[in-house]
Design a protein around this nucleic acid. Structure first.
Lengths: 146, 146
DNA sequence: TATTGTTATACTCTATAACTATA
DNA sequence: TATAGTTATAGAGTATAACAATA
């Protein structure tokens, strides 16, 4: 007989915890006028993995039209600059400004604070092992890890 | 100088991985005409933590009106039965049918398969440690763990 | 004619508000 | 008058489709 509970599967726990954590991260970002996807875009730019809006859309697995509105908002906040590629004037290159870098730092600090709240119950080496193994899974799923 | 990367925080990793895993779980559930929240409701019923629609809504942290449509769908599939409470005819009690129990078993199997895919790269004791520590975090966030 | 970015539109998910029936 | 459930409506988030500029 099989008595495995759904709630003890990794899938269930990662899914539900992920939702709760995203929600709490979102709440902290709101103070800076950002949502998680804006921060995702900033992260892509910092990594230098993609700069044209279309490449960013592919990398983030979102529609190109969504990148437009994310970039609009970030430009409005002075976090990114749009620059026409002089060699192919159809392409818009997004560049992280100093202000954008600072904003990303603030978001990173918010995430780190959340980490502290989350792992309050864990021993430091447990928390570190968790971070590390999640990194392995993230890489395996094609997500950025650093 | 602070060089911590956002992508290496627990918050970022849990949030992004949670989204990816939910998406993949969702895709598997689609074959059975279900979405994650339907399964969440089945799980509540199995746990016996709540039976009236309003109590279920509170427990799941969703609007009562959402429970209505989730229950509608589950009733349609024969997974739950609505029963008027004879002592307070305003209350609808949701009862898991045999078919609902079987459906939950199928969903649990889908999650377990996903677990196998996810942890293919990990040593068994790493995977188990992960499951366990996520359980601790989930409990700490008020999520069901078994 | 194909591609990049943009705009217009539509769809999914979920919440809030209005309503019905019981209490 | 208050509460459980339901229905109607609205909002957030994101995708798809139509369009403009450039290649």
């Amino acid at each position: 007989m099989n008595t495995v509970k759904l709630t003890s599967t990794l899938a269930f726990r990662l899914g539900t915890l992920g939702a709760v954590v995203s929600e709490r991260f979102s709440a902290r970002l709101a103070a800076h006028g950002l949502k998680p996807k804006h921060v995702g875009l900033l992260t892509v730019l910092e990594s230098g993995t993609a700069t044209s809006q279309l490449d960013i859309a592919k990398l983030m697995n979102v529609a190109p039209s969504l990148v437009v509105s994310l970039a609009d908002r970030l430009e409005e906040l002075g976090a990114v600059r749009r620059e026409r590629d002089p060699f192919d004037r159809r392409r818009q290159t997004l560049a992280l400004t100093q202000e954008g870098r600072e904003l990303l730092t603030v978001c990173t600090r918010a995430a780190a604070e959340l980490d502290t709240e989350l792992t309050g119950d864990l021993r430091p080496e447990e928390a570190e092992a968790l971070r590390s193994v999640l990194g392995t899974l993230a890489r395996h799923s094609g997500l950025p890890t650093d």
